[in-house]
Design a protein around this nucleic acid. Sequence first.
DNA 1: TTGTAGGCGTTATCAC
DNA 2: GTGATAACGCCTACAA
Lengths: 347, 347
Amino acid sequence: MQKLTLKKIAKELDVSISTVSKALSDSHEISKDTRQKIQAFAKLYNYRPNNIALSLKNKKTKTLGVIIPEIVHHFFTTVVSGIEKVANERGYNVIIGLSNESFSKEVINMDMLANGSIDGFIISVARETQLKKDFHHLHETINQGMPIVMFDRVLPEIACDKVVVDDAEGARKAVLNLIDAGCRNIGIITTEDHVSVGKLRTGGYEAALKERNIPLDEGFELKLKDELNEEENIEELAKVIATYLKDHPAIDGIFAVNEIYALSAMKAARYLGKHIPKDLKVIGFTDGMLSKYATPSLTTVSQHGKLLGEKAAFLLIERLEKDHLEPPFETIIVETELVERESTKQF
Amino acid sequence: MQKLTLKKIAKELDVSISTVSKALSDSHEISKDTRQKIQAFAKLYNYRPNNIALSLKNKKTKTLGVIIPEIVHHFFTTVVSGIEKVANERGYNVIIGLSNESFSKEVINMDMLANGSIDGFIISVARETQLKKDFHHLHETINQGMPIVMFDRVLPEIACDKVVVDDAEGARKAVLNLIDAGCRNIGIITTEDHVSVGKLRTGGYEAALKERNIPLDEGFELKLKDELNEEENIEELAKVIATYLKDHPAIDGIFAVNEIYALSAMKAARYLGKHIPKDLKVIGFTDGMLSKYATPSLTTVSQHGKLLGEKAAFLLIERLEKDHLEPPFETIIVETELVERESTKQF
DNA sequence: TTGTAGGCGTTATCAC
DNA sequence: GTGATAACGCCTACAA
C-alpha cells in the first residue's frame, strides 16, 4: 500500500496525469463527470500531493528553520512554542536545529538546512558565535536570498529583522523596584560581557542606579564565568555567590540576569543565614517554572517568550510571502513585565 | 547571488550537467583535468546540492518527524535533545510537531509531515488520543510504509518499535525507598487512569506495598483531574492536595507521579504545618530542574529522557537504513534511577 | 572521457 | 475537454 501519486491515479482511471492534476484542483477545464470521478477516487484512497515534489516545483518548502542554543531551557522552549503556533496557523512546519552554544554546530546546522530544506531562519545565536564574532554563515545565508529573523541574542552587525526583549528596560524596572522596596546597596549577578543580553541587562541596572542617584560600586557587579552555567556546577555557583555576598555584607538587594543565578543567590543567602526577603531582596530575569515554584517564590522579569516567538514567526512568514527580501528591516521590541512574588516582599 | 545548481555550473564551464555531477562525486569516468576544474569552481562558489531535489530523487528526506504533546516541558525537551543528538550524528534533521495534547492537532500535524516531508516518526501520543482510543492516523501512517517509534506514552494497540521508561519499576523502587525510610502510610498522587504512564506508576506503587505486606488503602490514592495540570491552576492544585492530606492525617509518605504534583504536595504540607521530610517524606517522578532547585530539594525518579530520545532515534534510523519495515518490533525499556535528595532524608 | 535521456511528483503552458 | 511537454535539481544507465 504505497503512497498514491497522480501517475497511479491516471493509470488506474485511464486518463492523463495532467487531467488528474487539473481535476483535483477543481479546474473547469475538466468535465464535471471526470472531475467527480477522479475526486472520488482520490478521496477514497486518500490521495495527498507529495510535499517534496511541490517544494521542488515551487521553490518553497513551507518550513521554517529554527536555530537555538539549547532546547532544555524554558525560555527557548516558550519561544519555540510561539513560533510553532504561528507557523502552524499559516501552514508552515518547523525544523529545529540546536547549536549547543557552539559556533561550529551552529554553522553545520545552518548549512544543512540552507540547501533547500527551509525557506528562512529564526535564530538566536550561540554564545560562542557572539564571542568569536564570526558571522560569515549568517551573511552567506542572507546573500543567497534566504531571510533570517534573529531573536533575543541579536547581532547589530547583521542586517535582518529582529525581535528582542526589552532587556535594558526590564532590568531598569527591576532595579527601580528594588530601590523602591528600600534597598540601597544593590548588587548585580551577571554574565561575561560578550553575552549581549547580559550586557544590556547590566546597562539597565546601571541606568536605574544613576536615575536614583545611587553611586555605582564596581565591586557590586559580579560577572560569572560561562563555565559556571554547566549543570554540574550548581554547587560551585552558589559558593561563588556566597563568597561575593560575604565580601559585600552591605548588599541588601540582588538583581540577577537569569533564574538560576537568582536561585543560587537565594541559596547562598541561606548559607549565610540571611533571610529573604527581609535581609536580602532578590529579582531574577526570565520567568520560568523555577521562579514560580521556588521558596520563597521569586520575583522576576518576564520576557513573554511565546509572544516573542509569535512575532518572529510572523515577521519571517510575512517577508517570505511578500517575497520582499530587501531592507528596510524591522526590529520589534517585546516589553518585559515585572512579576512580583515573595522574594521582594516588604515588611 | 542565487543558489548555484549543476545546470549553472555546466553552462558556466561549458560541459554537460552529468559531467559536472560525476566530477563532483569524484568519478573516475571524468578526466582529472575537468574534475579538478569543476571541483575548484564548485568550491569557489560554494556549491551545495539541493536537499529537496535529492529527497525527491532518493525518496528519502533524511529528516525525522517528532510529535510531542508539549515543548514547554522538561522531560520532552530532554528527549528531543537526545533525538537531535543522534539524528545529527547520522546526518538527519528533526522536524518538530506539537499536539498540545489535542487529538486533532496530532492528526493534522502528522498528516502534514507524512506527505513526503519526513522518513519516519517518533511520537509520544497526546492525552486526548489515549482517551479517545482513535488510532487511525497511526495505522494509516504505518500502512503507507512509514515507520513509527513510540516513546513514553506508548500504545499496545500499535505494532511498532517502542522506547519506554520503566514506569512501574521506577514507582516500585520509589515506594520501597519510602518504606525503608520508615513510612508506613504512603499516599500516591496520580493522574486519571487513561494516562498510561500514570496508571503504570500507580501499579508500581501498589506492587511495592503488597511486597512489604502493607495493606492498600483506597483512600490513599488521589487521582487528579486533567484540568488541574493547567498552569493557572497551581494554587488550586495545592489546595486539593491539602484537603487530601488533612483528610488522611496518618499519611507520612507521598509518591507523586510527576514533579509538579510532588512540589504541590510539599507546598500543601507547608500550609498544614507539616515538616518535610520529618513529618512527611515526598518522592516525585521526572527529574527536572524543579526537583533540583526546590526547597527542600526533591527526591525523584529520573527517567533519563535524553537517553530515551537517543534510543528512539537510533531505532528509527536503523529501521530506515536497513529498509526493513516488517516485524519483529523492538521495545526498549530505559531504566529509571532514584535520585535521593532532601525530601526523603531520615532523622 | 563526455554527453544524452529518463525519472522522482507536481503544475503550468500549449496543442489537439 | 483532454493530453503532451517542459520544468524544478539531481542522479545514473546508457550512448557516443
